[in-house]
Design a protein around this nucleic acid. Structure first.
Lengths: 116, 116
DNA sequence: TTGACACATACCCATATAGGAATGTATCCT
DNA sequence: AGGATACATTCCTATATGGGTATGTGTCAA
């Protein structure tokens, strides 16, 4: 089997840095393809293809306006990623750092049975 | 150019569902490869390969114990993903839903200039 | 109608997969 | 020493990708 398609889910779609950049740009509001091309410094076909992937996983929506196509971010499609990773947030929070220190100390004390 | 290597960063490593599963299992504590093989229902070489990817992006660490290799989750390596996606959290929060409704109403009122 | 413009799609190609099967390596037991 | 156990690595193969280039499609302007 090969790697899962980029259009499989938000996780795969967002693994590509360019697509994260596009999302970041769209966070500032609706944009036409040409704007994105300029801001990304990428070829127009490449941008269009990245946008297609983002559309297929519903991370963006499109709207026609004359000969332009305005893309808009669909934030909620990122929720699955957020939900998954949020469960691990505690692992680098300050409170956890403290807990970690405490555990370290306990381990040390156990290792050397002769306390003080 | 081809797709970026799975070992490029946490984003790419975690795009594979099996590797997310492994991380979820390791969240319960250190485990030997054999345990993961049983719990994933995957072949041993496949699991070892997934673990290699996770090691290369420092999502896990290893420790030898006899002929076993105990893998442990390194949570903080997930922080970059969390940081990125957290910026969009507001887009599906309840408060945002409300704000969205308000904006909808405003737009409607503007469209039809003849108020009441 | 003709041309310019904005965007999408088709094609080409090098590359890195994920799983399967076989083999290598280190550790433990007797 | 010899075998069993626990993992890692190597080879294989089909497949999807991302960028580049060329071309198709729809819209506007004159």
């Amino acid at each position: 089997m090969a790697r899962a398609a980029t259009t499989t889910d938000a996780f795969n779609a967002v693994a590509e840095p360019r697509r994260r950049q596009i999302i970041d740009l769209l966070a500032g509001g609706e944009r036409a393809v040409g704007d994105l091309v300029r801001e990304l410094g990428l070829g127009q076909p490449q941008v269009s293809k990245h946008l297609r992937v983002l559309r297929e996983v519903e991370l963006v929506t499109v709207r026609d306006q004359g000969r332009q196509r305005l893309y808009r971010l669909n934030g909620p499609a990122l929720k699955p990623i957020h939900d998954w990773v949020k469960g691990y947030e505690v692992l680098w929070s300050e409170r956890f750092e403290l807990l970690d220190d405490v555990l370290e100390d306990l381990k040390k004390e156990q290792g050397d049975g002769s306390g003080d």
